[in-house]
Measured scan of single mutants.
Amino acid sequence: EFTQISGYVNAFGSQRGSVLTVKVENDEGWTLVEEDFDRADYGSDPEFVAEVSSYLKRNGGIKDLTKVL
């Protein structure tokens, strides 16, 4: 089950073990991109978060400006 990723309007994530599946949706709710990120592939949590965040930004993730990150 996908849940909204904090700080984004149209990005959602689903966690299974160490694998986080993220997706970005358009205004109609269609999935634009979907990608798996395995936490085990990264040396640290900040590196993992930075990679996921960068992916979302590159692929149309819209920041939720009503929330302070």
Rank of each mutant, 00 (worst) to 15 (best):
Y42Q: 00
R16V: 07
L20M: 06
S6N: 13
S53T: 14
E34S: 12
S6H: 11
N59I: 07
S44R: 01
Y55A: 03
E25P: 00
N26K: 04
V49G: 05
P46H: 14
F12G: 00
D38W: 03
E34T: 13
V33T: 08
E1V: 11
Q15H: 07
E25T: 15
E35M: 15
S53G: 09
T3M: 10
L56H: 00
A50M: 10
L65F: 13
R39S: 02
K23I: 09
V24E: 01
D27K: 12
A50W: 09
T21W: 05
E1Y: 11
S53R: 14
L32A: 06
L65I: 12
L65V: 11
L32S: 07
Y55D: 02
N10M: 03
G17P: 00
S54G: 10
D41F: 08
S6F: 10
E34M: 15
I5Q: 03
F48G: 00
Q4P: 12
G60N: 04
P46Q: 15
Q15F: 15
T3C: 15
D36F: 09
A40Q: 09
G29H: 05
G60K: 03
T3I: 11
T66N: 13
E28C: 15
V68R: 09
D41L: 10
K63Q: 12
G17S: 02
V19S: 02
S44T: 08
N10W: 05
D27F: 10
F2V: 04
R16F: 06
G7C: 15
R16H: 08
V49W: 15
V68C: 15
D45Y: 14
T66E: 14
W30A: 13
R39M: 06
N59A: 07
S6C: 15
W30Q: 14
F37H: 01
Y8L: 04
S14D: 02
D27H: 11
F48S: 00
K23V: 08
N59H: 12
V9K: 10
G29I: 02
G29Y: 02
N10A: 03
G60A: 05
Q15K: 11
S44A: 03
E25F: 14
G60Q: 04
E25H: 10
K57Y: 10
Q4G: 06
T66F: 10
S53K: 13
D36G: 06
S18Y: 04
T66P: 07
E28Q: 12
L56A: 01
K57P: 03
Y42E: 00
A40G: 07
G61K: 03
T21M: 05
S54E: 14
L20Y: 08
F2E: 04
L20R: 00
Q15A: 08
S6E: 12
P46R: 14
